[in-house]
Design a protein around this nucleic acid. Sequence first.
DNA 1: GGAAATTGTCATACG
DNA 2: CACGTATGACAATTT
Length: 606
Amino acid sequence: MGPTLYMDVDLIDILWRQDIDLGAGREVFDYCHRQKEHELQRQRVQEEEKRQQLLREQEKALLAQLQLDEETGEFVPRLAPSSQSPQSATTAASPQVTQNVSFTEDGDAMSFDECMQLLAETFPLVEATATASVCLDVTVAPAPNSNHVMACELPALTQPPLLPASQPPQRTSPDLEQAWMELLSLPELQQCLNMQMKDTLDQTGGYLPTNTTPEVQDPNYSFYTLPNLAEVASNAAEVCPPEFINAFEESFPNMAPLDHLNQMTLKAPDLNTNFSAATFCDVFYQDIVNTKVTSVTLPCGQGNGGNSLAEISHKPTFTPMELHDLSPREAFDRGNKTEIMPEFPDSDSGVSVEASPHASSPEKSMYGDGSFGGYSDSDMEEMDSNPESAESDYSEMFSLSFQPDGFQTSPSVSAQQQDKKPKHGKTEPDEETGHNDPPFTKDKKRRRSEKRLSRDEQRAKALQIPFTVDMIINLPVDDFNEMMSKHQLNEAQLALVRDIRRRGKNKVAAQNCRKRKMENIVELEYDLDSLKEEKERLQREKTKNYSSLRQMKQELNTLYLEVFSLVRDEEGKPYSPSEYSLQQTTDGTVFLVPRIKKMLFKKNDN
DNA sequence: GGAAATTGTCATACG
DNA sequence: CACGTATGACAATTT
């Protein structure tokens, strides 16, 4: 059982990651496990001792993460939506705020303060949504090694949630974006990010040795992360946008993913003992509660950070699709009974789990729904619509994350992203704040209008496909194949890419077809009008000609009578019109023909 | 809340 | 045969 359970845990991790990508709050799950074992003991001691130091770094990390979240917006929102409802959201908000505050206090730099404010403004929703996550975070935090994360979380715990929650979510997407960009561009911030990256790496390295990481994940992870790191180092602090993206990817992938993995592995064993499919949720929940109670001091800030990190990490880190493959999940699902669906049953399906988008109870939702919820295409959308805005964030995040991968983005894509960016901040706040259950329709509409990610984009994101949808669809066959050959994709990813390409092509074809159809209709209508006009014109001409003909006949008749009246016989008497008529031959000669004769002639002719 | 309009997909045929 | 396109039919969404 032990090994199998362990495996399950890893699989679960993977699945969770996927779920997270999808919008599910797997982080919660992972964290809970981790927390159970090591969090309380180690975290308390180490964290408390090193709090201050860690706080700085962690906060920095959080900032980085938060930023990522913002831009990508994916994960942060998700957590909230998946996990819960407004209440949770409010709670979550507080943690972030606290983090922000602590950060500023640390006095890293003036810029940081600004950043914090920005974060507070931009993430009100996220934070709110994160409430539920906070609990989770606490539980999660446990991993001793994950000091960074923990530290980050600690601030939040120690400091009561202040501003963010209270502050109404502001939708200053454009402004916020600019601000973010600026912040990112700040050398200090970048340095901090880099620092965190390194720290996380180091820490992760330390952790890994103990239990370590699922083989599968690590490879991929390293695969993606390494490049990023290198880039970061090289870039250090430079320009905002590019670096911004890179930094995020780098920082997050390294930090969150690794930590999670480590924690996961560590905790897995423990869980195994208790873990049963049925009890799975319960266990987590309990663990979380316990951890919270016992280790208030522990860094849990993760509500925000943790979630955000986890989410963020997903993107940046490319979890191996292979792992993804539902098998693990399915097993997991059976056990839990939670509704996790195979995300990619077909290439077509994006994801499937249906979590109840609207979590009923905050806590439970967190554990049950949030963690387990999967998303189908429709589900994905629902998530977005969910209280939180997962969707908006998601889409936004997605766009950002996508590019970061280092893949070229097609111009169109970039343009879309830009468009989306401004909205990110806004969307989240609105939803978070209030969160209306009904929002569903509203959110969807809003999203669409705002241009959220398409289904395929969401799917691609969920599977962490390293190409933009535009690239997948628009690249010529040769280039497409070349691109595909450069990246190792699992079957699910390949299938999805193929489907995306097929659907994308067909979508364009359908659009063209409809456009053509409409053009044809318009043309035909135009032709119809033209023909109607022609008909009327001809009708008028016909009438005119008819009248003209009558007139000519009239004139001809008059002339005929006039000529006939001038004709005289040998005696000088006029011929009777009734007995004679004038006939003209082809050569112009005119003959006076007796009507009787005429009749005779006719008879003869016949 | 429902009808009309859009839009996305799928299935299928064709080049 | 693989691909891409065209298009009717449906379904999901949006207006």
